[in-house]
Design a protein around this nucleic acid. Sequence first.
DNA 1: AAATGTTGTTAAATCGATTTAACAGCGCAT
DNA 2: ATGCGCTGTTAAATCGATTTAACAACATTT
Lengths: 340, 340
Amino acid sequence: MKKLSIIDIANHLNVSKTTISFILNGRAEEKRIGKELVERVQKFVEEVGYKPNSLAKSLRTGKSNIIGLMVEDISNPFFSAIARLIEDRAYKNGYKIIYCSTDNDTLKTRELINMFRDRHVDGYIIAPPQGIEDDINSLLKDGMPVVLFDRHLPNVNADFVEIDNLFSTYNATKHLIQQGYKNIAFITFASGQTQMQARLQGYHEALNESGYKPVVQEIIFNQNEDLIIAPITNFLKKNKKLDAVFFGTNHVGTCGLKVINGLGIKVPSDLAVVSFDDYDVFKLFSPPVTAIAQPIEAIADSVITVLLNKLNTSSQHISSQSIILKTDFNIRESSKTATS
Amino acid sequence: MKKLSIIDIANHLNVSKTTISFILNGRAEEKRIGKELVERVQKFVEEVGYKPNSLAKSLRTGKSNIIGLMVEDISNPFFSAIARLIEDRAYKNGYKIIYCSTDNDTLKTRELINMFRDRHVDGYIIAPPQGIEDDINSLLKDGMPVVLFDRHLPNVNADFVEIDNLFSTYNATKHLIQQGYKNIAFITFASGQTQMQARLQGYHEALNESGYKPVVQEIIFNQNEDLIIAPITNFLKKNKKLDAVFFGTNHVGTCGLKVINGLGIKVPSDLAVVSFDDYDVFKLFSPPVTAIAQPIEAIADSVITVLLNKLNTSSQHISSQSIILKTDFNIRESSKTATS
DNA sequence: AAATGTTGTTAAATCGATTTAACAGCGCAT
DNA sequence: ATGCGCTGTTAAATCGATTTAACAACATTT
């Protein structure tokens, strides 16, 4: 049994396909189509389980009911958790998700945006890499709904959802200082992205206030984890006087813990640890790692709410909004009072 | 500047759109279109960056260049890692991915399959829940390329990619026994899926050989982690004489470790631990947890290879193939020799 | 009686591509 | 001069929907 088309339905009922289309799109009253006909059509459509071909529909209407979701890396627990929540909300609202990972690669991202465009996605959710400003601006100029998250682009006037990165690291660094730590390093991925810069700045501000010297180690990101672990190992070996480290992301944090285990460093007596992001690895480490937990649900909710809002009301005149969410600071054993 | 259509190109060059289409689809020679014309068209198309509207193309050709990927839960590290790899391979071959999480919910999965169908995806990659047999068979009957993975469906003759679950747990249980453990429990999610049944059976077979009594605890899956942790806690509290536990999945394993930490159980002296799946949580736990590592890359590679193969050669006559991959058994501190 | 309005329905255009079938123009054999 | 084959190109049909503009038939107004 092959797929039925609207014409098959029309022929079978001896009505025109126009009528069928009107009825199926809830325009029966508006077009004052006979009640009895409406019922007959609906009954039959229900009976044979006819579903309009969504490709044809999209071609004609220009709407696809698909949202394009671009994360940095879907296998990163932070992004996969967000993706999952966004997926749920989207499906509940009749939208599907096409997703992809950008790897923070501008060229790849550009291609992906073009692909999404080509597929006529109705809206874009993007954790944007740097260098993609023009492409996003071009999307905006063409009236496409776009929501950025996790970071934003300074010269792009798009809606975005973020957390308060600066305060989060400021606060966590303050905590380390209050616990008596004096030589606090910040290890992070080399990146000019807004969220990473803000995290770094929060760290700097807290240290400045106390007059301690900042020690920052930036790691070049690499798919191969060994190439992340190696520089962290070198760094920790060289800087023996450190009494605390602050990891800038969950990925750095995880690799950092591997290094700490590998070198046999005792936490927190040799070295206190704090990390951005929070997940099972940190909770289950011995001792449990103090971490800044991003409000995943709230982020996903905000993102989808903002986007759906833009999708439903074609209100061009609302200027862009930015949502900044607070984080939770989960203090655990890895950063308790220094014994010095 | 709005999107150009093939007609715009045709008009601008004073050629028919048919000719443009032939040239763009590499049928210029076949249709013996003048070399000079071909060049002129190609140059212009390149210049203005014209891209055919893929919706229209799909509508006409019936191909969408989209693969539907249905995992159990994209936020599970096992599935997100696989998804990532599949995504890469798919993009490299000109395919895009629409993904979704089934939650092992038959109804939800059925809806999703229908949605994929409606979107004319070219192929399906599915980690199928039970009860979806008829739907998959219906896909197969209609000649759709389908590859199952992580598990299969006994009454469905589809290609699938799996690991050797039975041997993996058999082998790991044997290891525990050789280390001197005698009261080995198996904690897993209640599920009739083939992979879970096989794991359970491997455990049983190993115990049978040794004459030890199996102790199995099945947990009802729940989104809310507390409802997984609670029954594990109860179980471990009640069965004091256990000297080893085997967790059936990464998720159960992670929750199990939380329970173990919560109860202050010493590993491995109080209780040895082995888990299915392997990831950072297990590597970084103290002591590191012995785990069965699935060959993620090999699984993703096999899945995509089988699917692309079906997509390219429309060879109906090749009977279905099943690929069974081997796992790695990573022995760590959590299962070393019992001191009894 | 002509004009206007109302009601219920539909023919035809459209979205943007692919594909089939045909056509114009030319050389060449009959 | 007629027919055939070859070359290069294209008009028209098609995919399956939505949407515009119109039409038939009857009622009502002027």
